[in-house]
Design a protein around this nucleic acid. Sequence first.
DNA 1: TATGAATGAGAATTCATTCAT
DNA 2: TATGAATGAATTCTCATTCAT
Lengths: 190, 190, 190, 190
Amino acid sequence: MRHKDENKSESIFKAAIHLINEHGLSETSMSKIAKKAGVSASTIYVYFENKEDMLNKLYLSVKKKMSLEVFYNYDDSISLQSAFEHALRKFINFIVTNKEEFLFIEQFSNSPLLHKLSLKEGIELFEPIFSLLEKGKSQNIFKQVDTGLLHMFMFNPSMQYVKEYFGGRIELKQDTLNELIQMTWDALKA
Amino acid sequence: MRHKDENKSESIFKAAIHLINEHGLSETSMSKIAKKAGVSASTIYVYFENKEDMLNKLYLSVKKKMSLEVFYNYDDSISLQSAFEHALRKFINFIVTNKEEFLFIEQFSNSPLLHKLSLKEGIELFEPIFSLLEKGKSQNIFKQVDTGLLHMFMFNPSMQYVKEYFGGRIELKQDTLNELIQMTWDALKA
Amino acid sequence: MRHKDENKSESIFKAAIHLINEHGLSETSMSKIAKKAGVSASTIYVYFENKEDMLNKLYLSVKKKMSLEVFYNYDDSISLQSAFEHALRKFINFIVTNKEEFLFIEQFSNSPLLHKLSLKEGIELFEPIFSLLEKGKSQNIFKQVDTGLLHMFMFNPSMQYVKEYFGGRIELKQDTLNELIQMTWDALKA
Amino acid sequence: MRHKDENKSESIFKAAIHLINEHGLSETSMSKIAKKAGVSASTIYVYFENKEDMLNKLYLSVKKKMSLEVFYNYDDSISLQSAFEHALRKFINFIVTNKEEFLFIEQFSNSPLLHKLSLKEGIELFEPIFSLLEKGKSQNIFKQVDTGLLHMFMFNPSMQYVKEYFGGRIELKQDTLNELIQMTWDALKA
DNA sequence: TATGAATGAGAATTCATTCAT
DNA sequence: TATGAATGAATTCTCATTCAT
């Protein structure tokens, strides 16, 4: 029995991400994806139930890839601040070096096509972050506020920062990056 | 000639926003908008060049409405912190009470259909915010970092907060709101 | 009472001819004609019943202009061959110097939109040609064949010739023109 | 995969020609063609890139068919006049018995939708005619004029003749046909 | 006379998807 | 597994025309 080709699925993902960033979700059709991926449109339906399913799987695949990188070599036995900085830097590094993946996530996150379940699964991949924030709270290093609130301050400004950079409205400098991280820390700090 | 109905353009906008939030940008067709707005599909083309043009005009219209509300009664001669808090609360209030407008903006902001020019014009509507941030810097109240950076910390966590609330993952409480504003202030403070 | 503006009707004609030659009959819409003519689309309907009516009137207008030029200074009391040559040269001259008009006629002649009546009226404008051919037959200078047949040989090669010239596949030289006329005469001659 | 039906392309062609003659090029829409051909409108786009492409391919298909018939049993080793007459009669016979194809060609020839390349390819299919005319010139049987000129006199009057017949303004008689051919020969003859 | 506003009908084309192979 | 063929439904947008002014 032949098995589903991992590469084929991957090249469909790549084509989809590329086209969605270039022309938007609405302009990206299955046949265009197929053409770009070098397969027949019907082949996509061998791998995915339908367009929505494909997009949700793509979303999770990117989230997975992202978490793998963020938590690569992650060690939460080190000091809280070090762990915090490590994770945040890895995160920023990922989205900077994986522009298309990141922008796809951003675009798809605001779409009603994103299933609640996929959203939930995507969040769960970043469980260690929540642990970190909880730990900071229990150690009275972070503010005693809802962990969700801490999470927002931890990531949203950085994400916006990278988007501004991609939009050409800002430069990417090591100094600014440090300031960004410092500000993030200040926001969380008790 | 017949007279141009001012409400028509407005009802097209309303219908568009509503449908986009309900089914997503990609799923919202001109004919569905027309039907919901109670006009003929071709009538939309009397008011707008094409779909893209319509969406960009809608984007700017919402941004305009938002800025009008944020800067209603805005007085930057009062203390910096008061002005800061006033603007931020007005902003949060607007997006909370104008869910569909806000979510449309969020969705459209990540779309390649958004013209650079519209984005720029939209930003310029919030010029007083940039003045406020600059002033804070010159008074050494805010960190000496890029104003764009301050801007991100000022708004992005709040926006994410409201999105989480809309997504039902968070409750809207006065206390949390105060914490949010405090955290924002802490992030900016020198 | 204001009267219908001759100029306006004329500029509608001009715009129509121009657009039809540039983009074809199918691509030429009333609104495009109106825009090019500098009037409102609805104004066209002040002058013409509908598109078909407009095109037929345009057809006849061009035919009229053509016949006026062909028969300017036409004197059939001179020798048959002189009259023949005079008319043919005038005709060729007209279509060469009125490219757009001529090509419109050619394009519209093959369209089912051309009313039988307009076709008939257009033919009647060239009655002197038929007289000429009849006269040539009665003088045994021309072949004793159907006058329609003589007519075809008199004009069709020349029309094709000019079309080839417009298509850039042939040059326009006085010598060739003379040959063309000689060949035409040879074809008719008994 | 399903197999591609050779007849499908052919039935699309037939439907197109029929409708174009009945209602004109501008009035013939893809969906009408599809309906008449008994296929879905989208199926046409499996076979052709777009309307323009379809019309050009149709044009060439008809030209091909025409040339096949004109040059069926064509033997240019016989006497020049016999070859000439054979080709011309075959041509007239084709257009008389393939009214719709011929009228489509006439209508489309004057349309800007006809690509220069299709026109060129169409002409090349009739290369033997040009050889014949050249040969006649080299044998001093035909006039020493541009071959294009000879070509026009060879075909255009006949085409007009058949069009007049189709328009009901002329009858089709063997005698007239003979006269027509004689006149054509006279026009070419040195 | 002149025209901007309005529209139903229809245009070309693409869509996501299925099916037979 | 893989795909070319096929399609009904939908897309954006334009059309010829009418209407109220």
